[in-house]
Design a protein around this nucleic acid. Structure first.
Lengths: 340, 340
DNA sequence: TTGTAAGCGTTATCAT
DNA sequence: ATGATAACGCTTACAA
């Protein structure tokens, strides 16, 4: 038994129209009427039916986020933090966040079609872009407001927020080179992901700049998870001429690599240097603490949220492309001596 | 320019009603008409406007989750994993998950009022219950379908899924007692949280059962975060007669305590034993690895999602109360020797 | 087998 | 200052 405008109208002996206007503080309504209406609404515990409002306004005040099996999981700390930033930001302006997980059996784009054409959401967030990303293509083609977390490589123009992964990776490699390392391994995710692509680019650039030999056998691809890092680490350590330092695509992988190293009896930070990417909270309390490239996750999220809300409201975007410079955080995992 | 039933109707020279029925496979529609309608719909790229459908059906096919500042954050790995379980489960049956973050300035219940009376959601999930939880009161009073992750203490009957925190804590303390520890500290969250209350109960029960002295100065309250654990650890280690073992309310706190211990030059697993709660992925790769009480996070989430979907659909619940037994996972942080 | 009409709860337009 | 009326896009009696 829910209260509608009609109920209030009946109670105060006015039309539904007047009640609606009174509630919205239109100025063409009598002061007394307004008071009466508002009081009655409060007494009755009236809450507007947002579904009806949306149908009328043709706006959902909701932003969508579609997660697929190939993307990041809700349980990834970096991503969780970004998402926290997004939702904090959009909540401030009264938007909701709709999260859908794409059933592996279903075409991911089908989900976009449903949510968007179904007018469930006013705009969507695309996370972990691929070098050629069909989600971006789809959204551009259908004129759907969206912001991407990450770039693509196919030269299409769209709003994004990204971190300069190449620069971050260059800083890591430079740091390791400065410490005297010459055999540097790279535990990486699939190069289909744009972030991995740019990391790879930075890696090669830095190797060249530091005059280090490029050994393809030191580049190992795996899932962007702890487990993936662990396996890749094992593979690297079992080589005949293993690396003395390893950079990774993200912190979870780095933690996995450290585990693998320690299982081999290696002393991380002395026998082997490990450097991550993201700076998740646990990088600071791992043992040894993890050298990594910091991304301001929460702020990235806020920025994404802010841009998307603007777009959804049809406002022009002041900044279409945001590329954030990450910073290298040096900790024990690349040099224990620095800390003893 | 979106396609509506009206567009299709015009195209096939039928009424909107017929088109609607054809699309929904009603049996009172001519086979040829049905085919024609469906084909045209496909050609035009028709997608139903779910907002209109909802207004009509008075169902949102959406579940709500309201996060407040006092609750868990999206960036907490355990909670992230539970949430992943929920969304995986509800996605399977076509439900969406709506996440709102309660603005600290706003009354949290106000948000419940909005989302629910606004018919945005068919049911809600309550996470991290308090001993006396006004959200639960509110939802019961308003007859809103909901499932709680956690119990309350005020004897109200409602559907919940919870872990037996008392049993988990007893197992931890018993384990430490078996190792010979007599001065056991407890780094805990606010006792307002039901989970903390039960942990405390289990802690005291086990201390008594093991004939260990109860020293209230060894119980330190802090935020359920790494930072909270770090501070509490420092406080404990600076006491004149510090504990030789510490149990914590969750793994994040335990990691913080380990950090504090290591900063004091203590060798965790030898000089000081630390035991956590949750078994987040990082417990396995911390150094030393963390002894902890495992909660099947993803499965908990699935269960919560499953129950809530049932409720939202108005189906009776087969199991109203689910209490899951956790298991103690013994790792290095309580006994390095076991592992060398 | 199909169409007409009413209604879900709101807001916008246009009279009065 | 207020009210009728239509519209948002869809579903569902009820009629034909």
């Amino acid at each position: 038994m829910t209260i509608t405008l009609k109920d209030i109208a009946r109670r105060v002996n006015r039309s539904v129209t007047t009640v609606s206007r009174a509630l919205h503080d239109y100025d063409d309504v009598n002061e007394e009427t307004r008071e009466l209406v508002k009081r009655t609404a409060r007494e009755l515990g009236y809450m507007p039916n947002v579904v009806a409002q949306r149908l009328q306004k043709r706006r959902a005040d909701t932003l969508g986020l579609i997660l697929s099996t190939s993307g990041p999981r809700l349980s990834d700390p970096h991503f969780g933090e970004v998402l926290a930033g997004v939702s904090d930001e959009v909540a401030q302006v009264g938007f909701d966040l709709l999260i859908s997980i794409s059933d592996p059996s279903l075409d991911e784009l089908e989900l976009y079609r449903q949510k968007i054409s179904g007018r469930r959401v006013d705009g969507v967030l695309v996370v972990r872009t691929r070098c050629h990303d069909e989600r971006v293509e789809f959204l551009l083609r259908h004129n759907v407001p969206f912001v991407a977390y990450g770039r693509t490589l196919d030269g299409r123009d769209f709003p994004y927020v990204d971190v300069d992964h190449a620069a971050g990776m260059r800083a890591s490699v430079q740091h390791l080179s400065d410490l005297g390392h010459r055999r540097i391994g790279f535990v990486t995710g699939s190069p289909d992901f744009t972030l991995v692509h740019y990391q790879m680019e930075g890696f090669r650039q830095a190797m060249t700049a530091c005059a280090l030999p490029a050994d393809e056998s030191l580049v190992v691809e795996a899932d962007l998870t702890q487990r993936g890092g662990y396996g890749a680490g094992q593979a690297l350590f079992s080589q005949s001429d293993p690396p003395t330092a390893i950079v990774t695509s993200n912190d979870l992988m780095a933690l996995g690599v450290m585990s693998a190293a320690q299982d081999q009896g290696l002393d991380v930070g002395r026998d082997i240097a490990v450097s991550g990417f993201d700076d998740i909270p646990l990088a600071e309390t791992s043992h040894p603490t993890l050298t990594t490239v910091r991304q301001p996750a929460h702020r990235l999220g806020q920025l994404l949220g802010h841009m998307l809300v603007g777009l959804a409201r049809g406002e022009p975007l002041s900044e279409q492309h945001v590329l954030i410079q990450p910073s290298l955080i040096i900790r024990q995992s690349t040099d224990l001596d620095l800390w003893l």
